[in-house]
Structure formats: structure tokens, C-alpha cells
Amino acid sequence: MISAPTRARLRFAAGCHVLLLPSMVLLLTFVYLPVAWAFVKSLYRFEIGGQAEFIGLQNYIEYLTIDPPTWPSMLNMFLLTAFAVLTRLTVPLVVAKLIHSLPAERTRYLYRVGFLVPIVVPGIAVQLLWSRLIYSDYGMLSETLRFFGLGDWTRGWLSDPHTALAALMFMGFPFAGGFEILVYYAGLSAIPESVNEAAALEGCTGIRKFFRIDVPLVLSQLKLILVLTVIGGFQGFEGIFVLSQGGPGFRTMVPGLWMYYNAFSYQRMGYACAIGVVLFAIIFSLTLFNLRYFRSAEEIQGHTS
């Protein structure tokens, strides 16, 4: 015999399940099934429009032990991601703090809007802008050098093996991303006024307050940006595809782009699936590691109280 409250609870839960079902079915169809399919197909040699042949772990063995671009592309991915983490965890936080410290709310508002507006520009447009207007033969960078009589210093910024990776890293300079600034700003705004007042009474101001009070209290935001940056850094390749296609040689190649080339340019679908599975494993492990060892302010508070 089920009691009335339990029945009501079950009815409510059933209603929730019914409402969740369509989303879950779609998710299953368009996310989980393709991922499972990729796992299976990574064990096959097959190309678009061709026959599939089961080859076991051959694709993985080739990718991890034979294919020359594998390790250089992994290194590039880690370097690009590390640089992105460094810049996204620092510059926007400093900018957010500066805006937050402004006395007038109207000025703060104007700055927030100013930094946020570039978010609406599509990423591809920004990448093309950097490629054509800044890094090209007659781009801003080379023309500025020529203007100052330093024409010999000009080069194909994206085709020169010594500058290509750095050119990619510096795309987005001065790294004050609107999204990150907003997230940090929200974090800084959430710090209770009593904490700020207590810090002021203790004489903890300026840079000391920033490092001792602000940074620990926006750890949740830092953690969010860290996770998003790492995932984006490991998965994303569209900027590199537009700017350098992973070249010269493989100097700016990343695994995601190599996967794309193998799948759609070289038609090696099974092999591309294997690269995708390896990438999935890396991202999954790093995210778990991050969740396990990088604790937010709330978790620290909960742990110490």
C-alpha cells in the first residue's frame, strides 16, 4: 500500500520524466549514439563511400606509435592551451577588478558594455580579421615594421616556422575576453560587503587585498574558466584551420585538426574516429582531475567549517 504523499511524489517524478524524455531521446540520438558509433568505427578501416574492414586496435597503434604528426600536435595543443589558460585566468580578472574598483556605477556599466560587445562578433570573423588585416603580407604588423624602416623583420607570420605558433597564441591580444570579464566581475560583485569592510579595517587593501581576499573568493569562477578553456583548447581547431591549416609543416597542427583532415580530406573515417576517442579520453581525464583536485572557494569553506 503506497501512502498518498508517496503517490503524489511518484506522480510528480513521473511528470518530470515525461518532460525530460524528449530531450533525452534527442540527446541519445544525436550525441551518445554518434559517440558510441565513433568508438566502434575506430576499430575499422573505412572511408566515406568505401567498404569497412575490421582491424582491431590498428588505428590506435598507428596514431600513437607511427603517425609522425601525433606527438608534435599534442605538444602544440598543450602549449596553446597552457597559454590560453594563463591569459584567460589573469588578464580578464585584472580587468574585471579594475572595472569593479571604479567608483561610479555608470562608468562601470560603460566599461562592461565596451568589453562585452566584441562577444557578438563571430569567432570566424575575428580569425579572418587577424589573418587578413594583421598577419598578411600587407597586414598591419608588416606595414608597421616597414613604416619604421624595419622591413627586413617582416615575414610570413603564419608561414614562418619560427613565428607561426606564437602568431596563433597572440591572436586575441590583449586577451581581455568579454565573457571572462563578466564572469569574474560577477564573482567580485558577489563578495559580501562585510568582507571588504573587514579587510579595509585590517588594513588589507590594494594588491594585497586582491591576492588575499578577491582571488580566493573568485576561485569558483576561475575553476569554471579553467575547465572551459581546457576543453576548448583541446577540442577547438577552427581558428588554426582558418589561419594556418596546422602549418607550416605540422608546426601549428593540433589533434582536433588532424582528426578533421583525416575524416573529411583524406576520407580515413575509422582513423579519425580513433583520434577522436583518444582526445575524448584526454579531455575526460583532465576534467575529472580538475574537478577532483582544484577546489572552489565554497568547497574550501565547506571543508574548513
Binding site: 589573418s131 598577419y135 603580407d137 600587407y138 615575414r155 610570413g156 614562418d160 602549418g247
Partner: peptide, 11 residues
């Protein structure tokens, strides 16, 4: 040309 990718050879 130094820049073998983006060089506008006609220009």
C-alpha cells in the same frame, strides 16, 4: 616571396 601563404603575388 617571403610569405608563401598569404602573399598577393599580383599585387
Amino acid at each position: 616571396t617571403r610569405d608563401l601563404i598569404t602573399a598577393d603575388v599580383v599585387r
